[in-house]
Design a protein around this nucleic acid. Structure first.
Lengths: 147, 147
DNA sequence: CCTATTTCAGATGGACTGAGATAC
DNA sequence: CGTATCTCAGTCAATCTGAAATAG
């Protein structure tokens, strides 16, 4: 009498907004599992990756580049600074700003996260060919660019 | 000196777990905007849609079919019942269970939500061809099926 | 005895708002 | 003056856990 798995009704099964949400949940779980032992979460990675690419940056800039809210950036930067992964110093040229800099340990930590997250991507995309993965990324990017 | 939009670093720009999350955010905003005036949210829709397809069901069954947690089903069923969109009666054949049934108003409400959500899908998928939309749905479904 | 269902109380991580202090 | 930055306090919807009460 009870259905064990997948009695999802038609209206939900092909609804893009819902499918994307379900896949995001799977992605989140894979990400959390991958980062479990590191003391970091995806926002930590986003900030470290941004600093590695663009060099020292203000918190406002980090927020813009990662789409993380300014107030959440504060909390993550606090945490990263407490762990010695970044340094935060006042900007002498604009005293409203902090300049956030990646430390050597931060760079090492980032590389560890890179490896672990690569595994999470593979987990998420299991069963897709390389071409399908590329197409998936293309479509997602396309949607984001049109916003 | 400041970058106005899209200074997202390489490591983040093509990371599937992150892209999916960003698109889910866009999808959520479109969904919330679409349902704004209805007093319902996506979970309300999921339960109503399930009841419309499979007929009267227990809360546990609804939770399984929609992947909504049992404890969250309680809250949504409460709300839908308060609004007269469903009826909840004890199951005489198994007194642990409630039988949840769609009311006539519930069915009407569902149809309203259908229309509004169709608009949200179009908003999300703006700029994708019909073939790309189909492929997007196929890839998302594929990922979910392999979990 | 074990398992299933409903329910509640609460924790969590993430997205977001509003406002204050400071500085451009 | 208005605007930008950093910070804090707090809201919100959603996911999820644990446990209690009841019943199969």
């Amino acid at each position: 009498m009870e259905i064990a798995h997948e009695g999802t009704p038609d209206r939900l099964r092909t609804l893009p907004t819902r499918l994307v949400n379900q896949v995001a949940l799977v992605a989140d779980r894979a990400t959390e599992r991958a980062l479990e032992a590191t003391g970091s979460r995806r926002h930590h990675y986003a900030l470290l990756a941004t600093l590695a690419q663009v060099g020292p940056a203000s918190q406002a800039d980090l927020g813009r580049r990662t789409r993380i809210d300014r107030s959440d950036v504060v909390a993550i930067v606090n945490d990263l600074a407490d762990r010695g992964l970044i340094e935060r110093t006042p900007d002498p040229a604009d005293r409203r700003r902090n300049i956030v800099t990646l430390t050597r340990q931060g760079r090492r930590h980032l590389e560890d996260l890179d490896t672990r997250l690569a595994g999470a991507q593979d987990e998420l995309l299991t069963g897709l060919t390389a071409a399908e993965r590329a197409e998936f990324i293309r479509l997602l990017t396309h949607i984001l660019d049109r916003q």
